[in-house]
Write a protein that binds this DNA or RNA. Sequence first.
DNA 1: GGGGTTATGGAACGTTTGTTCCGTAATTAA
DNA 2: TTAATTACGGAACAAACGTTCCATAACCCC
Lengths: 193, 193
Amino acid sequence: MARTKQFEVENVLDAAVGLFWKKGYHATSANDLVAHLGVSRSSLYDTFGDKRNLYLQALHQYRKRIIGRHLYLIETATDLKETLEAIFTLIIEQDIDDFHPRGCMLVNAATEMAAVDEDVAAIVRGNQWDLQKACEMAIKKAQYQNELRTDIDPKSTAAAIYNAIIGMRVALKTEQEQATLDGIILQTLRLLD
Amino acid sequence: MARTKQFEVENVLDAAVGLFWKKGYHATSANDLVAHLGVSRSSLYDTFGDKRNLYLQALHQYRKRIIGRHLYLIETATDLKETLEAIFTLIIEQDIDDFHPRGCMLVNAATEMAAVDEDVAAIVRGNQWDLQKACEMAIKKAQYQNELRTDIDPKSTAAAIYNAIIGMRVALKTEQEQATLDGIILQTLRLLD
DNA sequence: GGGGTTATGGAACGTTTGTTCCGTAATTAA
DNA sequence: TTAATTACGGAACAAACGTTCCATAACCCC
C-alpha cells in the first residue's frame, strides 16, 4: 500500500535516548536529532510527533532498557546486599572516568522537567514506584528466608536505599573520589545489617 | 564622575537566583531575565557580562544565602541528629505542596550543567565539600563529647548523609507522600545510632 | 502496471535566542 | 558650567530555534 520506513523505530529511539540522556531536553536541538539519528526532519516529525513527544518516548525507552536491568537484578537477587552493591558498582562504572558523565536520564529529567511537565513527572514517579517496590519485596523475601533481620522495616528501608541511589547518580555528575563513593555504599548498605 | 546604578547588584542577583533556580539555565531566556529583574538589557550585560556569567554569579549567591544557612545549623548544632532532622524538614517544607517544586539550585545545576561546564562543576564540588566536611566535623565533635558511638566512621557517614539529602532534593521534584519522606529520614538518621 | 498511500529530503516558515549598538540621561571632579 | 565617564532604554542584529510544507520516491494491492 505505501512506502516502507528506512529505519527501525527502536534503533532511532535508542539514539534519541543517547542524545537526550547526555544533553538533556532543552540543550538538545532539532538539528542535533536530525544529525545524529540518521532520519530526516520530516520523517522524525511524522513518526514521533514533536520534540517533546520524542523526548517522552525516549524516556520510556531508557526506562525499559537501562532501569529494566536493575529491576531484574533486584527481583532475581539471591543475596540482596551483594546485589545492591553490584548495582551501585554498575552505576559508578558507567560514569567514572567519563569526561562528560551522563548520570541517570530519569534523574536528569526529574530535575530539568518534572516540575513543569506532568507527563515527565509521571514517568519518573512510575520508575520510583517500580524500584522501591522491587526493593521492598526483596527485603521481605530475604526476611522470610531468615537472611535478614525481621526488625528492619521493608518499606522505609527500600525508600532510603532508592534515595541513596538517586543521590549517587547526582554525585557522579561531578567526578568523585572512589573512597567517598565506597563510603556511601558501605554506610547505605549498613541499613540492612 | 559617572552616573550611578539604579539598582542594587545584590537584589538583582537574588532575583536571578529566583529565575534560574525555578527554570534552570537553558529554559531561562534573556527576555525572562530582563522582564523579571527590573534591569534593562544593556545594564544587565554591562554589569554581569553574558547569561552564563550571570548564572555562575547566581549560583554563588544561592550557595551563600541558602546553603549557608544549613552550614550554620550544622556547625552550631548541639544535638546533631535533631539538627539534621530539622534540615530535612526545612528542605521538605520548601517544596511540599508547591505546584512547581524548585528543589535545590545546586542539584539542578549539577544534573543540567556540571558535565559540560567545569565552572559549574567546581561550584557544586565546593558546596559538597563544605557540607560534607561540616557534617564530618559535627560527628567528630559529638563523638568527642560522648554523644555518639565512636565506632561510627565520621567521613563515610557524613558522605552518606549528604548523599541522602541530595537524593531527597531530587525526590521532591515529583511530589511525594509524607510517609515515604519520613521513612527516608528515619532510616538515614539510623546511621547515627 | 497503474493508483492509492506513506516516507523522504530539503527548502522554507515565523519565532525566539543571546548579544550588541547607539543616542540620551545622569553623575561628579575640575 | 563644562568635561569626562558611566548607566540606561530600546531598537537592531545575526544565528538558531522548533516546526511545516511540498515535490518526489518507494511501496503494495488490485
